[in-house]
């Protein structure tokens, strides 16, 4: 998948985008006579609008509910928008002594950033010799790493947990960061990009007597900033959204934000005003990031294929 998408990216992904597609596109038939183009497109456009509104509905409903008093969330008839919008729910949960939202947010931010950074550094250091150096056992080791991608995650759950107990890492950031770091995915991805850099580029530097680390940092890394950023974003999101593992290895104040909002939900089981305020706090930073960087999110996804957790 990775390679195919990379190839797609190299040529314009959307041929004739926003141009006159009818010249070459499938709609060449019926171009000469018949209704104007906008009329042909109208049903499709309307379908898309309806679907888009349906997709946005749960998010609208989350924000809307979070701004209502608890009585208003279940009021009959339903309030399609908050009649008396209030930030009371947000204040209640942020001031609640047993719901340290800022601490949870920090836990998520710190562990996800450390995980993303660590993944990128490890992937670069490992992919570099595997793609651009010659040494005994290179291909074998690459195969070993690659094969580990095949192993279903469930195999690691119990042994990792018992290891965390033995390391005394339960309820620490270590448990959130280290076990996932050696996953093959990052190595695999970075190697694809290392391979795509022409070899001649480093020859000159080598003749000047640069060592391998200088070549990596000064010559190769500038070519790899975009893939590194994509990998970092992807790993950050994967760690931020991770659910099963943090659910069991960190508790109380040490929980990550997405996990914490569900344990928090067991306290406010049907107090949906507060639940939706908590959900909004946990998701709005990510939604805003997506708004500004959606190109990179989508590119990262098509670059990586569907990565199963």
């Amino acid at each position: 998948m990775i390679v195919r998408s990379t190839v797609n990216r190299a040529r314009p992904t959307i041929p004739f985008a926003d141009g006159d597609a009818a010249d070459t596109g499938p709609s060449v038939v019926g171009r000469r006579a018949g209704p104007p183009r906008w009329l042909l497109l109208a049903p499709r456009f309307l379908t898309l609008v309806v679907l888009a509104l349906l997709f946005l509905l749960p998010i609208y409903w989350m924000v809307s509910t979070s701004l209502k008093s608890e009585a208003a969330t279940v009021a009959q008839p339903v309030q399609w928008w908050p009649h008396e919008p209030t930030l009371e729910n947000y204040r209640t949960i942020l001031e609640s002594p047993n719901a340290p939202f800022l601490r949870w947010a920090w836990n998520s931010l710190f562990s996800s950033s450390a995980f993303a950074l660590g993944s990128v550094v490890l992937a670069v250091l490992t992919a570099y010799p595997l793609s651009r150096m010659r040494f005994r056992g290179r291909d074998t080791w690459f195969w070993v790493i690659l094969s580990s991608m095949m192993i279903p995650g469930v195999i690691f759950l119990i042994p990792h947990y018992l290891m965390m107990i033995r390391f005394d890492w339960i309820d620490t950031y270590h448990a959130l960061i280290w076990p996932g770091l050696p996953a093959a995915f990052g190595v695999f991805l970075m190697r694809q990009f290392f391979v795509s850099i022409p070899r001649e580029i480093e020859e000159a530097a080598r003749l000047d007597g640069a060592n391998s680390l200088q070549i990596l940092v000064r010559i190769l890394l500038p070519f790899l900033t975009a893939p590194m950023a994509t990998l970092a974003l992807f790993q950050f999101m994967a760690s931020w959204n991770n659910y099963v593992w943090p659910l069991f290895v960190v508790h109380g104040d040490m929980q990550t934000l997405p996990v914490a909002i569900t344990s928090f939900s067991s306290r406010y089981w049907t107090a949906y005003g507060k639940l939706m305020a908590g959900t909004a706090i946990a998701s709005i930073p990510i939604l805003i990031a997506f708004l500004f960087a959606q190109r990179y999110f989508i590119r990262g996804m098509s670059l990586t294929g569907l990565k199963d957790e």
Binding site: L51, P58, T262, T279, A282, F297
Partner: peptide, 19 residues
């Protein structure tokens, strides 16, 4: 449209579940 259809995938499963 593409961004809107893709948007839910970036949410955590707990957010999606509570919604």
């Amino acid at each position: 449209f593409r961004a809107i259809f893709f948007l839910p995938t970036i949410l955590a499963v707990s957010v999606m579940g509570l919604l």
